[in-house]
Design a protein around this nucleic acid. Structure first.
Lengths: 215, 215
DNA sequence: AAAGTTGTCGAACGATCGTTCGAGACCAAA
DNA sequence: TTTGGTCTCGAACGATCGTTCGACAACTTT
């Protein structure tokens, strides 16, 4: 559906460029504060020329958020295939999220920060992906509970707190200062599973993740 | 400086009303998407009449963020006085933050979400408060480390992950569905200190917070 | 060569934006 | 009663916004 039918020239590649540049500008200035003219000059395409690629500014935001979120979710599902250990699945959820954030910080900031800026025909579609993402995380957490009996913590609070840890980096992460994806993932998973305090002895859980904590 | 000198009528009270109403509108629609006319009609004050109370839309945002952040920080410092137990100090940091969020969700959303919307004369002043808040949290965490030897986790990552957990609720918290401040605080502090997995035995730390976790 | 599709653009549309200005009402001190 | 702050407002300013339109070059297919 993308590379056939009525003979596109290089339309698809240019759309990707526009999406990438737009994410950059939206991440820097914010969606509402960015004018279509800003995108025009940043992308090197005339103002009216942009409207060949998207129908409205809202639609442009939707294209960015939808593509980003879909990729993150599908990528996670693919990496999760065949894996059954709940702790390792949780680690992969965090790693997948953090890795995509480190390689595509602009897109992830737009996804996290401009969630409310999207209006209702588009908004609901992105929220649907978000619900699937949450459901998957919740499922992982619940199977973790089933194995390890996770201290009776409210599972909704637990999962959303984990989301807080993995989404918040867009506010503070500095490349060069802060650690890479593996190490950041290890720290976050370590906190979430074992907390910050030293385990009196090794935690009762015997998976490979038990050795994480330190980079 | 607020209630003397050149005879104010009820100016201060009306300013507080405008700040409260503006926070509501900013929280609902976002700062950039909100027009001064929106605030005018929501506050029941004419468009030009608003400019008696603030110099610009930017200044209005600054007044909200500055007052909110100052209150949260000063309130925390006051509650921390005389308390030396690091874990209890950390619990109070979280509780103070969550409590203010639950009683002033609009102001806290504006503070968290519209951080970048503030421009540079004002921006720096709010960031200065933010740095003091972070420094205090970092100090608490470091003393926690000094006592409990907190598993060699990168302290910057740990503190910022904790901030992620306590700031993220503005995206998901639903009154009536989600637990109150005490319980939410207990859950977050429990995750941060002990993690989600059951301690093999009681954690090596012997404070009153050890019993938290469950509401 | 003709017809049709793809991609690009300048110019302009009406709407809305933040802010300013001058005038006037209300009220306390002189 | 006059003077001078305090507070409020309608009307208007220039600037900028998202979007549309018609024209046109480039290229592929008939």
């Amino acid at each position: 559906m993308t590379t056939s039918s009525p003979i596109p020239r290089d339309s698809e590649a240019k759309l990707q460029l526009i999406l990438r540049v737009s994410s950059q500008v939206f991440a820097d200035r914010g969606f509402e504060a960015t004018s279509v003219r800003d995108i025009s000059s940043a992308a090197g395409v005339s103002l009216s020329g942009l409207y060949y690629y998207f129908e409205s500014k809202q639609h442009l935001l939707y294209l960015i958020q939808s593509a980003t979120f879909t990729f993150v979710l599908e990528s996670l599902k693919s990496r999760l295939e065949g894996l059954t250990d709940p702790a390792e699945r949780l680690r992969l959820l965090v790693l997948n999220h953090i890795e995509y954030f480190l390689t595509h910080p602009n897109e992830m900031k737009v996804l996290s920060h401009e969630e409310d800026a999207l209006e209702d025909p588009y908004r609901e579609k992105v929220q649907a992906i978000k619900r699937r993402y949450y459901a998957l995380a919740r499922e992982i957490f619940d199977s973790l509970t089933a194995i390890g009996l996770a201290r009776g913590i409210n599972p909704r609070i637990a999962v959303l707190s984990l989301f807080g840890m993995i989404n918040w980096p867009y506010k503070w992460y500095k490349p060069g200062v802060d650690p890479d994806a593996q190490e950041l993932t290890a720290a976050i998973v370590g906190i979430f599973l074992h907390g910050v305090l030293p385990a009196g002895r090794a935690a009762a859980y015997g998976s490979g993740v038990a050795a994480i904590g330190q980079g």
